[in-house]
Computed example of a mutant assay.
Amino acid sequence: MLCIRGIVLPEREERVFRIDGGVLREGAPPGGLARRDTELVVDGGWLLPGLVDVHTHPGARSTDEPFDEELLREQLGEHRDAGVLAVRTPGTAARMPAWVDEDPELPRVTSAGRWLATPGRFFPGFGHDVTEDDLVRAAVEEATASSGWCKVIGDWAQDEPAVPLPLLTSVVEAVHAVGGKVAVHCQTTEGSRNAVLAGADSLEHGMHLDPALLDRMAAQGTAFVPTLSVFGARAGEMRAREPGVRRDLWLAGWDVMPGTVRAAHEAGVTVLAGTDSFPCGTVAGEMSWLVRAGMSATAALGAASWTARAWLGLPGLVDGAPADVVAYAADPTREPAVLEHPSRIVLRGRVVR
């Protein structure tokens, strides 16, 4: 029998778990840890219930590439090897193949199906291109065909109109009526506003999000996934460009994003970690950006672990939970660099590293 002992975060309590059929059971087995049939695969250190990336798009590296199942497997493996044991894919170029849920070597995947893009609001042909008249039907179809989520491209160019509020509201109402949830890509003031007022379940990016909307987001449970790391990586390039409407609007949004993230967290909005970039398995970098924005190290770590798991409906390190555990030699809230070097990864009750 495999057993685990260490200090559990966020509670900071030492606990012992045994693994029974891929499930965690709290406490040592009868007869204690010295039993001959017991293997203590983690003895000491700091335990997390698996990292989470709630905004990642495995399966294609660029809009010029078709969806590739072998690449999907490879990139999900990159997540797993970094200790990311659950991901949400808010939009891919194709629906997740059935084998993803059946492969014990891969992280748990919550899929939102294909991106839903109305004319002029996405890379042509990369997602599911639909007319505005067809958007509600397509959103319900994707939500019911995936893990219950759908993803709508709510806006695109900084100086062009977003999906109209009445239409986006109809999408959210229809998807909620079938028990689904809606993620909305938004980078403009209008797009972010419409997503909040429509009652979306998550705002993806929210670059020009009006802080006046944060209390409403908190009250209605709209999560904020700012993907700071992907914007931060691009900021230098954008500043080097010649001034222009789109460049200037982009920079104006980026310059206030860290403050908006901090204000969102302080307002009680669920802020979550998502990378939206490659290589996969880099969610630790997103946590660093959340800390730079003003979140505490513990809150930022939760945004990519226990908080994100609870938001996805996955339990933490408790009796009866799936045996998904990542162990570290030091406290990652005090030594963040340790997140790059998990000492042990247990997925679905099996030691994978």
Rank of each mutant, 00 (worst) to 15 (best):
L76A: 09
E14C: 05
A98S: 14
R80N: 01
Q75R: 11
R12T: 10
V84Q: 04
T38H: 03
R95N: 10
E102K: 10
I7N: 04
T89A: 15
V100Y: 05
P29I: 04
G45A: 08
R36W: 07
E13G: 02
R80F: 01
V52T: 13
A34T: 13
A28P: 12
V54R: 00
D20H: 06
L24Y: 06
A28F: 01
L51V: 02
V42A: 01
V8L: 02
V52I: 09
T89Y: 06
R25N: 06
R35D: 08
E65W: 04
R5S: 13
A82S: 15
L71S: 06
R15L: 14
V100Q: 02
D81K: 11
E65A: 13
E69P: 00
V8M: 01
T56S: 09
S62P: 00
F67L: 12
G21F: 09
D37S: 09
E39Q: 14
G59C: 09
E74H: 13
G59D: 12
E78N: 05
H79G: 02
L33H: 07
R5T: 12
L72G: 09
R80E: 06
D81E: 14
I19E: 04
P30L: 11
L71Y: 11
R12E: 07
F67A: 14
A94Q: 14
R95K: 10
V42T: 04
W99K: 04
L51W: 03
E65C: 03
G45D: 05
G44D: 00
P97V: 01
M96C: 06
R88I: 08
V16L: 10
V42C: 00
R88Y: 08
P66I: 12
D81M: 12
W99I: 02
R18Y: 02
W99T: 05
D53V: 05
R80I: 01
R61L: 15
R12Y: 15
D68Y: 07
A34F: 08
R5I: 07
D20G: 03
G44E: 07
D101C: 02
Q75F: 09
R73E: 13
P49R: 06
E65G: 03
G6R: 12
D37R: 08
V100H: 03
R35N: 12
I7V: 15
R61I: 01
R5A: 10
V16F: 03
G21L: 11
G91S: 12
E11D: 15
G59P: 01
R15W: 01
G44I: 01
T56A: 08
V41P: 00
P10W: 04
V84G: 00
R73D: 05
A86Y: 00
P58D: 13
P10F: 04
G27L: 07
G77E: 15
W99F: 14
H55G: 10
D81R: 15
G83H: 09
F67N: 03
A86P: 01
A82M: 07
I7L: 10
A93V: 05
L9S: 04
R80L: 09
L47G: 09
G22F: 02
E70H: 11
D103N: 07
H79N: 14
R73A: 12
Q75I: 01
S62A: 13
L24M: 12
G45C: 02
G44F: 08
D68F: 07
P30D: 15
R36N: 08
R95V: 02
V42D: 01
L24W: 07
E74F: 14
